[in-house]
């Protein structure tokens, strides 16, 4: 790892000023779990690290019925998972945060760091896309708001401007009564998901009112599959419907192909993950088959 100066500013404005002045030689550090790997591999060689630890306004989780949930960017995955507010109002988000990576990374890694690194093989982007999260980006120039799906633009690329800091993640008031974030691993020993899929729905008994379905980790950015949502809407959930919608999902996405899995394999597994997740909308027996 190259030598660097370590700076500890206290406001978003100061951070933004440093970023503007130092440019590419300057990197922010939150939990450090992603950045340290990049530093050690000399993928990035900044001369200055700007710690976000003392910056005001980047912490805390609050909820109000009008604005919904606000999560400070420095909130760790473990804190999201533990938060009574999140568990009560957005159980799908708390559950996702409690299962991603491993206990250590959940204690160290922040939600903001996860989003800004824009690593496709991670969980929060998919879940937050389904929840229609909005990101708050701050700089010395002021604040702007961007849907998470506009923020994540490509493989390890976000819409963050060079002088901007992600300050907050906002999620509108919940309007779904079902939510599940599925993670699929190629082997049990892997941490990062090969595929993930978030499904949210409003149900009336075993009939779907409205659904949100987003696939991630296996596509460069989270992919919402509106065609599958449309097929689910207004229908009674049966094994046949789950298969029909899963086929649509598998055909709609554009999977990456790499050492962890070719695109054909990924597409097949997306089909399986989609079917199983949709089946969760109704009661299943111990073998995972739909009852009645």
């Amino acid at each position: 790892m190259r030598d660097f100066d370590y700076l500890m500013p206290e406001t978003v404005g100061e951070v933004s000023g440093l970023l503007a002045r130092l440019g590419d030689d300057c990197r922010m550090i939150a939990g450090g779990t992603a950045l340290l790997l990049a530093l050690r591999q000399r993928m990035v060689t900044p001369t200055h690290l700007v710690s976000l630890a003392r910056v005001r306004g980047l912490r805390g989780i609050t909820y109000d019925p009008r604005d919904g949930l606000r999560i400070g960017a420095l909130t760790t995955h473990a804190a999201v998972a533990r938060s009574p507010l999140v568990r009560q109002r957005y159980p799908v988000l708390a559950d996702m945060a409690s299962r991603l990576a491993n206990p250590q990374v959940r204690n160290q890694g922040t939600l903001g760091g996860n989003l800004c690194y824009a690593d496709p093989t991670t969980d929060p982007p998919t879940c937050l896309a389904a929840l229609e999260a909005m990101l708050v980006l701050g700089s010395a120039r002021g604040y702007r708001y961007l849907p998470v799906t506009d923020f994540l633009v490509d493989y390890y690329a976000s819409a963050l401007e060079p002088d901007e800091v992600l300050t907050e993640i906002r999620i509108p008031a919940p309007r779904f009564d079902f939510g599940y974030h599925a993670r699929f691993h190629r082997t049990a020993a892997e941490h990062r998901p090969l595929i993930n899929l978030a499904l949210l729905a409003r149900r009336d008994g075993d009939v779907v009112g409205e659904a949100r379905l987003v696939v991630g980790a296996t596509t460069v950015v989270p992919t919402r599959v509106a065609a599958a949502e449309a097929v689910l809407a207004g229908r009674r959930v049966t094994a046949a419907l789950a298969r029909e919608a899963a086929d649509i999902v598998a055909e709609a996405i554009d999977p990456v192909s790499d050492i962890r899995g070719g695109s054909a394999f990924r597409r097949d597994m997306v089909r399986v993950v989609a079917r199983r997740t949709i089946e969760r909308l109704v009661e299943q027996d111990s073998e995972g088959r739909i009852v009645a």
Binding site: Y6, L37, S51, V105, N107, Q108
Partner: peptide, 21 residues
């Protein structure tokens, strides 16, 4: 995980953190 320690009682990986943190 061989480098795991507790930071304020929570388990963390000390290879993924700077001492200054």
């Amino acid at each position: 995980g061989a480098c795991s320690v507790l930071l304020d009682g929570e388990v963390v990986k000390s290879c993924l953190s700077l001492a200054v943190q």
